[in-house]
Simulated scan of single mutants.
Amino acid sequence: MNVLVTGANGQLGSEIKDCQHQFKALNLVYADLPDLDICNEDAVNTFVTINGIEAVINCAAYTAVDKAEEDAETAKKVNVEGVFNLVKAMENVNGKLIHISTDYVFDGKKSIPYNEEDTVRPIGVYGNTKREGELAVINSSLEGIVIRTTWLYSAYGNNFVKTMMRLGKENKKLNVLFDQTGTPTFAGDLASACLAILSNEQNRIDKAGKVYHFSNEGVASWYDFATAVMKINKLDCEVLPIETKDYPTLAQRPHYSVLNKTKLKKNFEITIPYWRDSLEKCIQKLNS
């Protein structure tokens, strides 16, 4: 199967490259700007035709949460129009699509893990545009699914883990939020899950519905996450807990972002690692 990976130079796309050797049945074709702009419908259709694309993993997204509040037009172009273009292109060839979404489609006011049937209440421009992108897949006739994830990090690009490692070497103390709860998610684990789903030729990928949740197992605050990064790296930096009100940002963040993964694990028979174990794996990769 010829699979297009959009946003190939981002965190998830880069991790897919690292684990592709485990999935011999898939021929992965990678594309990112400037080689392919998913916001250009003609360019998407031409790329799909020339490369014989049969499936897409859409890792492309406008993810600058605060900047989105000031640049809603670009966020909508990438997170909504771009997804519509991929959906239409795959419908034209009777292909498959895995679209990556976010916990920001929820308002974060629950106190138990969100499942796929929970009511969405997007937060801010980013959350709203990602929800519109979800609907492009959900309301299509395509064999496509949405995978929502949360607190993504990897060995590539800019992310919380790499920032904490840098700041931990530069500072003796750091203030980190303790009143926002979620699950750190290693992009390498999500990459493996996406490829495993497409490698299963026996069933339609959307046989149990078009929305799934994926994160690592367990629960943590940003404070817990930062503390783990310092301990694993043996950094002499004290992490101090602060509240959201003490660290104002342009865009609002969900206070609770824990996702229920039961549906994905059961339907695709995927085992998901504990977040701390995957963090150690990623940091080992960064330090090697």
Rank of each mutant, 00 (worst) to 15 (best):
E280M: 01
T6L: 06
S154E: 10
W222N: 10
I147M: 03
T181Y: 14
A187R: 00
N94K: 12
V5E: 06
V83M: 00
I232V: 15
Y223W: 12
V44G: 11
T183G: 15
I145Y: 04
E243N: 08
L190P: 09
G95D: 12
L198K: 12
A228M: 13
W222M: 14
R166Y: 01
T150Y: 08
G133L: 04
A60V: 08
S111M: 10
K169T: 04
A89F: 01
F84S: 04
T163V: 07
V161W: 02
N171M: 11
E91D: 12
T262D: 15
I145N: 15
A25F: 11
K263T: 00
D103C: 06
S101E: 07
E201Q: 10
K109M: 13
N159Q: 08
S257V: 01
P273Y: 07
V176S: 10
S192E: 14
F178T: 06
N40W: 02
Q180P: 00
I16T: 07
L279P: 01
P34L: 00
M90W: 00
I138N: 03
Y62R: 02
V5T: 01
L97R: 10
K173E: 15
S257L: 02
E132K: 04
S192V: 05
T262Q: 15
E81V: 10
V3G: 04
G182R: 11
I283A: 11
K110H: 15
E91W: 00
D37R: 14
C39E: 12
Y223H: 14
V219I: 11
K261D: 08
A228D: 15
T181A: 06
L4E: 07
W222P: 00
A136H: 09
I98C: 14
H21R: 07
A75D: 12
T185S: 14
I205A: 07
T46L: 09
D224S: 14
N287C: 13
G7R: 04
P113H: 08
G133C: 09
K210N: 13
K231I: 02
V219G: 07
N158H: 09
V258P: 06
L28G: 11
V65A: 03
K261Y: 02
V258Y: 06
R276A: 05
N175T: 02
T262R: 13
V29T: 06
N171C: 07
K281Y: 12
